[in-house]
Design a binder for these strands. Structure first.
Length: 666
DNA sequence: GTAGGGTTAG
């Protein structure tokens, strides 16, 4: 019966059918090619009345066509499927349904609807696919679920798939009342209906009702169990999940997909870094029942906690790996700061996908190897937005801001549309280049392309404040009332500080603390610099002290540099030197640079020599300390000493233009 | 050879 509803024979076939099957029994004489007088028994036709070969088998060419079309649809080659569909003279309902499914799955609901309206005979699947299409299309938060419901009401007959599709649709958008009404109204609930309801409660954070319904289920399969475990895991109820798995898992056999439920809980433990628990569960799964997901999940668990060796042991043990396995392992190497191992795997991987390439590019970029990152980026067979964003950000983190901008332009030329991540990186590059003109242009693009959020606003504030457009920065800073984080504050305070507006910086700093936003080490760098530039020695020292004592922030080398600068500028050179000697870490060139600058300012040649020698050790090729010493001697007219410095410099073959250190500009 | 519920990364 079911088979016949779908396969309505063409009129010619039907006629022949009636000749052979019904006419003789009724004893009515008729000639071949004439329509019989009695009603054509379409409804009562079933497989008992028809030869099996006719009832279940369409012509082989249609079968082949359908197989081809559904294959193309599944592999996403929709346009090719459509060409084949249009060029075929013989189609049946499955041909149409397959084509409609293609449009539905790619979200082209209006094309699907056109075909649906056009098709000569619709079966229950045609309706079900259209309903599914409407429920999965997006319009606002509710999608086209009301359209789906209208079709559901309109369809001539419904089967359990129709009901289940509709229930699932309501459950997904949180209309559990509607879902429940349908669930109660449907004539024969299947395990899928129950699962849809249970999942619905899970998605809508109603754990209690989900569990309650789960316990009431007449039968549970592995999907039900996976769903409930997934819900419990998401609600951090790992123990309860383990209990449910133990209680109900024993009633489901491995052959019926019990492994999925195990995978879910293994993943739950893995995500929380509980590798021991994950491994114990993983080991319960019989060897032959472990699937690729089980292995991948366990490998992921190990990489997450940085146990890359155990991850690799499992990876090597696997008999069948998929792209996911390779990517997880490569990602593990990339994130546990080992590009050599990642690269070895990458080279041995049979079919790297975009994710693999992106992983490798970001790995090289993060390890500072911009050149290799770029090389891989150029050789990518296919790029997506993430690839572009990764590479643009890579330039930024390696301080090649010009490179970031150039690549961004290239991206636009190639027709790729930037998103908030791209624009954020590009704004950071504008900041690095202190290019207000470009920053303004990017701001325009931000306004046109994305809904501003906190990170993008922070990027804008940072860009404006660093480029000296303090009033624009302040405008944006004040605009984001509800969502301001420490980055916003740091950006604004840093902007004031770097433009000599120490009073404003300090005022904002006080406000920040009063509001309850915790300052970070970056805030203190700005504050100490602001104090240094405006000679607020005691205030600066006080902030340095409160940083360590009140906020528990370990002073970094930048703080010491600012403190040395602060003291040195005021002529407290001995105190500055004491600070350097008290440092737990090796002073860097900024620290010594601050000291040598102060020495020149206050004509302390002895201490200048100490700083200069330290700088020469740090950067042997830099001319800056020599130039500074030369100038100091020249200032006081000690030309013989000045000449000596110059001779030593020439002897070491140091040219004046080498080394663009910050010290050189002091 | 077409439709519905559940699992793993970034």
């Amino acid at each position: 019966m079911v088979g016949m509803k779908m396969i309505l024979p063409s009129p010619g076939k039907l006629m022949a059918l009636n000749c052979t099957l019904f006419a003789p029994s009724r004893g009515l004489p008729f000639r071949h090619g004439h329509l019989p007088r009695f009603p054509i028994p379409t409804v009562s036709m079933n497989e008992f009345m028809l030869p099996r070969w006719f009832a279940s088998k369409p012509p082989p060419e249609i079968f082949a066509l359908n197989k081809r079309i559904s294959h193309l649809v599944r592999t996403g080659l929709l346009a090719e499927a459509r060409v084949l569909f249009d060029s075929s003279s013989q189609r049946n309902t499955i041909t149409w349904n397959s084509m409609i499914t293609g449009y539905v799955k790619s979200g082209e609901i209006s094309k699907a609807r056109d075909l649906f309206d056009e098709m000569p005979t619709r079966d229950v699947t045609s309706w079900n696919v259209m309903i599914l299409g409407y429920t999965r299309s997006h319009r606002g938060v509710h999608g086209f679920v009301d359209e789906a419901r209208a079709m559901f009401e309109q369809m001539p007959e419904r089967d359990h798939v129709s009901w289940n599709t509709m229930i699932s649709a309501y459950a997904r958008i949180g209309r559990m009342d509607e879902a429940l009404k349908l669930f109660q109204a449907m004539p024969d609930r299947t395990v899928v209906s129950w699962n849809a309801m249970v999942s619905g409660f899970l998605w809508n954070a109603d754990m209690a009702r989900a569990v309650e319904l789960y316990e009431q289920m007449p039968e549970r399969d592995s999907a039900s169990l996976s769903a409930i475990i997934s819900g419990l895991v998401q609600n951090n109820k790992l123990d309860e999940a383990a209990g449910i798995l133990e209680k109900y898992g024993s009633k489901i056999c491995w052959k019926k997909g019990l492994v999925h439920a195990y995978d879910t809980l293994v993943a739950g433990y893995a995500q929380r870094g509980q590798v021991k628990e994950a491994r114990a569960l993983f080991d319960v799964i019989p060897k032959g029942e472990k699937n690729v997901v089980s292995w991948n999940t366990m490998i992921m668990g190990y990489t997450r906690v940085g146990d890359i060796e155990s991850a690799r042991r499992l990876f090597d043990e696997m008999t069948e790996r998929d792209t996911f396995s390779w990517n997880t392992m490569i990602s593990g190497y990339v994130h546990n700061r080992s590009m050599e191992n990642a690269s070895n795997l990458f080279c041995g991987m049979p079919e790297p996908d975009i994710l693999t390439w992106n992983l490798m590019v970001s790995g090289y970029a993060e390890s500072g190897n911009l050149w290799l990152a770029l090389d891989l980026f150029k050789r990518m067979p296919k790029k997506n937005l993430v690839s572009w964003n990764t590479m643009i950000a890579a330039y930024g983190t390696n301080n090649d801001f010009k490179g970031a901008i150039d690549l961004f332009i290239r991206m636009l030329v190639e027709g790729e549309k930037p998103d908030r991540h791209t624009l954020s990186s590009v704004l950071a590059a504008c900041t690095g280049l202190v290019d207000l003109h470009l920053g303004l242009q990017i701001h325009q693009m931000v306004v046109k392309t994305v809904i501003p959020d906190l990170p993008i606003n922070n990027s804008l504030i940072t860009m404006y404040s660093r480029c000296g457009a303090i009033s624009e920065a302040l405008l944006l800073f004040n605009e984001v009332k509800a969502y301001k984080d420490f980055i916003s504050w740091n950006a604004m305070i840093g902007g004031y500080a770097s433009h000599g507006l120490a009073v404003e910086a300090l005022e904002l700093f006080e406000l920040m603390k009063r509001i309850g936003v915790k300052p970070t080490y970056i805030t203190f760098i700005s504050i100490l610099n602001a104090c240094a530039h405006s000679g607020l020695v005691e205030e600066g020292r006080g902030h340095f002290q409160s940083m360590t004592q009140e906020y528990g922030i370990e002073p970094r080398v930048e703080h010491f540099a600012a403190l040395v600068d602060l003291l040195g500028r005021q002529g407290q050179l001995e105190e500055a030197m004491e600070v350097i000697e008290s440092m737990a870490m090796e002073p860097d060139k900024a620290v010594w640079g601050a000291l040598i600058g102060a020495c020149r300012m206050h004509n302390n040649i002895e201490l200048a020599w100490v700083a200069a020698e330290a700088l020469m050790r740090i950067e042997p090729d830099s001319s800056a300390p020599y130039v500074l010493l030369y100038n100091m001697y020249a200032d006081v007219g000690q030309w013989d000493e000045a000449t000596k410095v110059r001779e030593v410099m020439e002897k070491h073959d140091i040219r004046k233009h080498t080394g663009h250190s910050r010290v050189g500009s002091l």
